[in-house]
């Protein structure tokens, strides 16, 4: 530091006494208020370290005197949410499924909740609009493998289909070709017979009589004599216009040869009963419910 104060003649500002190549550095310190504010922020930061979580330790961090944690904040928020929703959700928990659907307020709540939960858990397979995909049923239409009433939907949601849950819905489309029950030629015949039942075109020269015989011996046990299906066994109606895997000959042959065993997970234990009720009402209200 220079012990003298030299004043620059042009600007009238004191210099620091430092000179580089004849250029002297002017001494224009930061405004005092700025410097004081800066020091206050430093002191403030120290206070912050003490009262809030700040410093990392080996396995955790300093907790701070206020005991603040963002996780606790979330817990409080969630508890508040529960308090706000509590009464309405309790009403949902006790009402019957049919009553929920008839009450506009409860229906609105169930649909709102159902839509969110559906998006989080079901949309991956069934699509965000529940329109399904090949192998994953469209939940908007009126074709239900295991029944489309409120109770049936709730049961499917709770225990799933071929889910491994003790109460799961269980049905089997056998692999008639792979297991050697039917010969490839017979499979082609019965596939064409099924197409005929559904009102679709058939391969020229196929033997309808033989097809009917094969169907009666192998398929009618589950799908029924008239091929209208059986929701108790999850056997689809083969005469309607909706096909889960496809109705073309090749797909039918594949289905009969290798069988089908789509899985719907059980949601009991993963979602609480009230949520599953809301889900059942939501899915039912999509439009296909019976």
């Amino acid at each position: 530091m220079a012990d003298h104060t030299e004043v620059d003649s042009v600007s009238g500002t004191a210099t620091t006494g430092h000179a580089w190549d004849g250029i002297k550095e002017l001494n224009t310190p930061l405004p005092r208020w700025w410097v004081i504010t800066f020091y206050i922020t430093i002191v403030w930061a120290i206070g912050y370290w003490i009262v809030y979580p700040a410093w990392p330790t080996i396995s955790s961090n300093t907790a701070g005197l206020f005991g603040y944690s963002s996780r606790a904040d979330v817990a409080v928020e969630l508890a508040n949410l529960e308090k706000i929703r509590g009464a309405k959700m309790a009403a949902l928990a006790t009402a019957s499924l049919a009553d929920i659907e008839k009450d506009p307020a409860m229906l609105g709540l169930a649909r709102a909740k159902g839509k969110t939960v559906f998006g989080d858990n079901c949309a991956a397979c069934h699509g965000t609009g529940a329109a399904g995909a090949k192998g994953f049923p469209n939940l908007n239409d009126d074709d239900w493998l295991w029944g489309g009433s409120l109770e049936q939907i709730q049961q499917t949601l709770l225990y799933g289909i071929r889910s491994g849950h003790p109460k799961t819905r269980e049905g089997q489309m056998l692999a008639f070709g792979k297991d050697g029950v039917l010969k490839p030629a017979e499979i082609v015949t019965v596939a064409n017979y099924v197409r005929e039942l559904a009102g679709l075109s058939t391969r020229p020269g196929y033997d309808a009589k033989a097809g009917a015989k094969i169907f009666a011996e192998n398929c009618a046990a589950c799908h029924g004599d008239n091929a209208k299906g059986n929701p108790e066994l999850g056997a689809p109606n083969l005469t309607d216009k909706i096909w889960l895997y496809g109705s073309d000959e090749a797909t039918l042959i594949e289905t009969i040869t290798n069988g089908r065993a789509g899985v719907m997970p059980a949601w009991e234990g993963r979602l609480d009963p009230t949520t599953i009720k809301a889900m059942a009402v939501y899915v039912h209200s999509l439009g296909g419910g019976k």
């Binding site: 699509g127 609009g129 529940a130 329109a131 469209n138 908007n140 239409d141 074709d143 216009k241 296909g288």
Partner: peptide, 18 residues
């Protein structure tokens, strides 16, 4: 109008819009 799905085919072949 429902955006997703925009229309549904029912088992008897008729169309439903929500």
């Amino acid at each position: 109008h429902d955006r997703n799905p925009i229309a549904i085919k029912l088992s008897d072949g008729s169309i439903r819009n929500a």
